[in-house]
Amino acid sequence: MDEILLDVRGLTHRFRLNRRAVVRAVDGVSFQIRRGEVFGLVGESGSGKSTVARCVMNVYRPTSGQILYKGVNVCDPRQFRANRAMLQTTRQIIFQDSTSSLNQRMSVADIIAEPMAIHHIRPKRGTLRDEARFQLKYVGMDASYLDKYPSELSGGMRQRVAIARALSMEPELLVADEPIASLDVSIQAQIINLFRHLQEEHGFTFLFIAHDLSVVRYLCDRVGVMVAGKLVEVAPTAELFDNPLHPYTKALLSAIPIPDPRRERARTPYAFDPARFERDGELVEAAPGHLVLRKGGGAE
């Protein structure tokens, strides 16, 4: 479990709005993901968590900082070109909205086999169609779906197809950007179980972007908390939920609704004032494996 698969160092991404205004969507974010773990990145809308995912996948080019994937700096054009095939096959992304991320005019079999066709990978199981059938079975769907189109599938099914497509490349790192946010409760549970199965039985490594903390708590090994482009706290899941240190983390955790009327009504959310948020500071290790953003980097 100790090999570091993804090492993000001082990642900064700015969006230029016009000549004067610049938004720091991601500001000096550093974290590591070990092989075989599920790393959750949580935050509210606009916190920059999706931007991190996109930088990791080379969708955006970061303004500064390094992203080392298996020791290759993916932000460096020369290193990227030299390792292009490896980078494009072993990292895969799953998006929130499977309605728009799957081509509506392709059949399920074609969608799943497309990455293999693009990279000219010889299918292990004979034909591309066999491969698609295998992957579909892997995510819990039978072969009768092979010739269906995305519009004929339900949201949960579509998300499974998106996962099957990502798995067809036998990736080592799966980036899932809010993969369950648009699904119904009972379907969410199915997809969460699938992710858990993939990680436990097959050792996939996940970067799991989410805003629903109860899901993150259930699924992730370690969690990073982002607010306004800053990573403010990183800790093992149990440690983070039992002993949150940063005021924003406390506010976020206290806001999780509990499906239990008596306790939910007794709960008072911990208020966090974004205006007083201290951007400066650096991550310091407050407890073993538990990093928190503090000013000056010193003790409390």
Partner: peptide, 8 residues
């Protein structure tokens, strides 16, 4: 659809 919201 959110039982947490309903509970509150």
């Amino acid at each position: 659809h959110d039982l947490g919201v309903v509970a509150r």
